[in-house]
Design a protein around this nucleic acid. Structure first.
Length: 534
RNA sequence: GGGCCCGUAGCUCAACGGUAGAGCGGGGGACUCUUAAUCCCUAGGUUCAGGGUUCGAAUCCCUGCGGGCUCACCA
């Protein structure tokens, strides 16, 4: 069974699927795995007739901790301040940094992937007082919380430490405060200059009732509190959190022992790797989610995350074969779903996988599966050949006029292929006339090939063809006369002009170049050198 | 040190209890206006190793080896 259906089949009663994200930092493609997985689980539940909601929390009261994202002069002032209270970047009309970030990067990407959860903002949830019961519970049971940290994660909190993060009344930072004394109504807190290394508190100390948005719960408690508040029954997490003694285990224990509720069903998901290493923006191996989304259409991106089971790491190298291969595998699954014969093994319930890859969840999967899809690699090649009418060419390949859906797919793939060629495509996928000089590979040309090129130069100089057709005819004619097999003749041309042994239709390629350049290059490749003057 | 994931043809992976497969690469061939595209043929891999369960294991269990990630600061 398709993994999302397997999971859905185990659910009993109404379900609440939840996921969250702190809106800071660049989001690389790998971060999209969680949202796609949760969306698929939610869709699978609904499709089984299970009552289910899909929630997505924006943790915008978390502290700004990425200095790189702030302008130099605002680092001192805003590091450690809740993201909801940090002003947006210059020129943005958003109400806050968090709103800007989510609005600019998150929502558009989600929309392209057909992910439509119910969003909630933690700044609003805290502000409304709905978190107050959990804050109170956490404070009343602070001793137990400390014990859990020590037992589960071997983390020793300082004596008197309380599980709340007060927002400093003087400087507005949340990341720099420590709360120390709970009297049942208020806590005493200190905003310390050296509490964390990445932000500096102002030194203020005071007492405050930590409710109604004046304080937040630390990460693990906040997570567990959300489970209780929203009745979450399924929430996966990345494997970094799912490790023993890690965040998830801590939060699970807090849910059980502090908030007295069974934690949701976990779905551990693996990372997206580049070259066997975890994708990392700081290491320079990250590919920004929105950048990849430009090149890879939504259904393909969904497919990327849905094809492997969640616990399987995904090897993703945007500069390698990953992207074209992804298209091909998707097309194969589409063909199988449409009932066509395909090679190779199929994943379980490939039709379900296909349906879940579609961005529009109400779309008719059978219609989409049957639609004509141009091969990505082929499209990328055609795009580089002068004078190719792609829609007409595709209609010819299909053998019939393209329908509305097929034209839309073609347009999307054409855009994707163009973007791919402009960014990640490896050189061998690129066709480029080597204008700077004779490619080194020309040294490998055989004698018969040189003779052919020389003869061609002579013929072209005498009577230069004026069209692709004309060139093409000449190429064959000369090949015939020189008694060289067409394969070797054309191979020589590609080497001379492109530095590779194959390429697009040669006649049209040559027709797109100036005749003088063509003749000169043919001669050079043939081994002729301009003779000494006189 | 603890945990999790992975280890299948050169590469990327599929199959997840029922006679080991695909794509790409490599090799060979077909198409006498295409060499791109397309199509056909070809890889014979002790499924990391060793035990165990089973009528039957790449697939389940145990151990070891190798690789990766992660936790012990914050979210």
């Amino acid at each position: 069974m398709y993994w999302a259906d397997e999971l859905a089949a185990q659910a009993r009663g109404p379900q609440v699927v939840n996921d969250s994200k702190t809106p800071s930092g660049t989001v690389h493609v790998g971060s999209l795995r969680g949202p796609v997985i949760h969306d698929a689980v939610w869709r699978a539940l609904r499709e089984r007739g299970v009552e289910a909601r899909f929630l997505y929390g924006v943790d915008d009261l978390d502290a700004m901790d990425a200095a790189a994202l702030l302008t130099a002069d605002s680092v001192d002032r805003f590091m450690g301040v809740p993201l909801a209270h940090v002003p947006p970047p210059p020129g943005s009309s958003a109400a806050s940094y968090a709103r800007h970030f989510v609005g600019e990067l998150f929502l558009p990407t989600f929309r392209r992937l057909g992910i439509e959860p119910e969003f909630y903002w933690m700044s609003e949830v805290y502000g409304s007082g709905r978190m107050d019961p959990y804050l109170r519970l956490a404070l009343d049971r602070a001793e137990r919380v400390r014990e859990i940290y020590a037992r589960v994660s071997h983390v020793e909190k300082p004596a008197g430490w309380l599980p709340v993060q007060v927002i400093c009344e003087q400087c507005g930072r949340v990341g720099t405060t420590i709360a120390l004394d709970w009297d049942g109504r208020t806590v005493r807190y200190e905003c310390r200059p050296d509490y964390v290394s990445w932000a500096h508190g102002c030194g203020h100390a005071g007492r405050v009732a930590p409710f109604g948005g004046r304080a937040t719960l630390p990460w693990n408690l906040g997570w567990a509190a959300k489970w209780s508040l929203f009745g979450v029954t399924i929430e996966g997490c990345g494997k970094d959190l799912a490790t023993a003694g890690g965040s998830r285990e801590r939060s699970d224990a807090i849910a059980r022992e502090v908030f007295e509720r069974e934690p949701p069903r976990n779905v551990m998901y693996e990372f997206l790797n580049v070259g066997g290493r975890k994708m990392s923006t700081s290491r320079g191996t990250g590919a920004a989610a929105h950048a990849i989304a430009e090149v890879v259409p939504g259904e393909l991106l969904r497919f990327l995350f849905l094809r492997p089971r969640p616990h399987q790491a995904i090897e993703f190298d945007p500069a390698g074969d990953t992207i074209p291969r992804l298209f091909d595998e998707f097309d194969r699954i589409a063909a199988a779903t449409a009932g066509r014969e395909v090679k190779g093994e199929l994943p379980p319930d490939h039709d379900r996988l296909f349906a879940h890859s579609l961005v529009d969840r109400s779309a008719d999967a059978a219609t989409h599966a049957a639609a004509f899809r141009p091969t990505f690699g082929h499209l990328a090649l055609l795009l580089q050949i002068p004078g190719v009418e792609i829609p007409a060419r595709m209609a010819a390949e299909k053998g019939a006029a393209l329908g509305e859906l097929e034209l839309a797919i073609l347009a999307e793939r054409t855009r994707a292929a163009a973007a791919w060629l402009a960014t990640y495509a490896p050189d061998r996928a690129r066709i480029e006339v080597r204008r700077e000089g004779l490619p080194a590979a020309a040294a490998e040309l055989g004698e018969d090939q040189r003779v052919y090129l020389g003869a061609l130069a002579l013929a072209a100089e005498t009577a230069p063809p004026g069209s692709g057709d004309g060139w093409q005819a000449l190429l064959f004619e000369v090949a015939n006369r020189a008694a060289i097999p067409a394969g070797r003749a054309f191979g020589a041309l590609y080497v001379a002009f492109l530095g590779r042994t194959n390429g697009p239709r040669a006649g049209w390629l040559l027709a797109s170049l100036e005749p003088a350049f063509v003749v000169a290059r043919l001669r050079a490749a043939a081994g002729w050198r301009p003779g000494p003057a006189g």
